[in-house]
Every structure is written in C-alpha cells, then in structure tokens.
Amino acid sequence: MTRNAMIDEWYPVGLAGQLDTHGRQTALMGEPIGVRLGADGNAKVTGSNGRALPVCIRYGHVWSSLGDPQKALFAIPEADQPGRRLVDVGVVRVRCSPLRAVENFLDIAHFPFVHTDILGAEPHTEVPNYKVEIREDEDEVWATQVKFYQPQAAKSAEGGITTEYMYRVPAPTCSILYKTCPPRPGEWDVITLFVQPLAEDLCDVWPWMALFDDETSMADLIHFQQTIFLQDRSILENQIPRLLPLDPGMEIPTRADLTSVAYRRWLKRHGYIYGAQLVAQ
C-alpha cells in the first residue's frame, strides 16, 4: 500500500479555549492521541507511543498531524480582520467518512429539504449555474457565484432573498464558506467546517465562524450553526456506503454537484483517499 498522502496534513484536534492540563484523549486516523496544556503553557499533542506531534493554534482550534506537515496551515485572511466575531461552535461526532462531511458542506441543493425554511424552501429549489475551478497556484478547490434563494436571511428579515456563496477547499477535510453578509455589503461572512478524521468512517466535526454581527448573542450564533449541522448529521449517518465513493459509476452527479465533482477529482489526483472508496463493492 502506498503512503497515506493525507498523513502530512494538519487536522483540528481540540478547541484552544478549552485546553487544560488533564487533556483530551482522542484519535487521529485510527491512532489514539492526547491533547493537553503543557506546564510551559503551550499545547502538547502526543501520539500513541508518547511521541510529540506537531502543534499549531489557529482559528480557535488546536491543530496537529501524524506526519510531517510540509507547509503551514492554510490562510484565512478574513479571520484577522478587525470587527469580526469569532465563534467556537464546538465538536459534534458523526458516524460517516470525513470526506462525506466535507462534501455535504459544499452542497446547496439539499437546503430546501434538510434545512427547510432556514437556508432554503420549496418551490425555490433550482440551483443556477456557478463557477468551479481547481486553483493550481494555491492547490485549492473553489466554487464561486453560487446563488441560492434563502427564505429567511436574518432574524429581522421579512421574506426571502437570494444569497451568494463562495466555497473553498484548502485541505482534504476542511472547507471554508463565504456568504454575503447583510449588515456589511461588500464583505463576506466566514463559516468553516474543520473535520478531524478519527477513522475512515468516523469523524469529529468542528464548525467555526468569523462573522460581522454585533446584534446576535453568542449563544444564538452557536445554536444557529449547531442547528444547521445537526440537521445534516442525520443525513450523513444514513448515506450508503459510509465511505465517499470515488468510482464515477457509483453515484450520479448533476450540474448542481459540480463542486462535489471537482472535490472528488482533486482528492483522487492527490491520493487523498483516507475515508474514500475507490472501487464499487
């Protein structure tokens, strides 16, 4: 078997704000790991044989890797903009492939059926054409000009509006969503999905947000994102097979799924197949 190409990637393994000296026992790609606050005040991550693993703290989370990361964690320049509120949404465990969790995050066509009356509503089910590309310089998947009807854009909003989204996949189990920001036209709200692969068919999902919103309480913001993700969870745990099929004959995409098609192609090209199924079984 070839070396797992995903081994050298950074993965979220805990909330930076909740680190303590007792630590958190968790796992990364099948290997038990421990995440704790060291005596020197820095985060420590150890592998199963006690070896120290690489650590970085970014976007509210502790990140680590079983391998030897060749580059720094991807940048989210917007995260450092002043005036944004940074929201730690917390962890949710899902019995599915980490790659399925990311692919669902990239999908908008399910909004009317799964996030009914929040992110979408019948009869506004049409997904207009949008642009998808693999940006070779950054080596990232991007979808832009994604537009979809949203029945209730904000708590105060009467009636629906068309919301614009951009999606970005900078790492095999991480995705960033940019969404039009009603209080600040011209800026984008940032909503991320950071996925910690525990096993090929089990993951801990850490959503995180950087928003322009001075009105809504922190608890409300957390509840909103947890609501959305928990609506997805019952889908993700009922997809067959649990692993993401990379065999094109296994599932049928349409034009609305071009982001997913590009994501699968990009995974395959890089050999990012932890959590994927290559041949139909």
């Binding site: 059926f113 799964v114 009914t116 009356d117 019948e122 959305i228 993700f229 609506q231 969870r233 019952s234």
Partner: peptide
C-alpha cells in the same frame, strides 16, 4: 434538529 419536516404534508 435531527427531526426532519414531513414534506408530504404539503403538495408539491
């Protein structure tokens, strides 16, 4: 969250 809408209650 976790309990889906009964979409069949509404006609298409």
């Amino acid at each position: 969250p976790g309990i889906h809408r009964l979409h069949e209650l509404k006609p298409e």
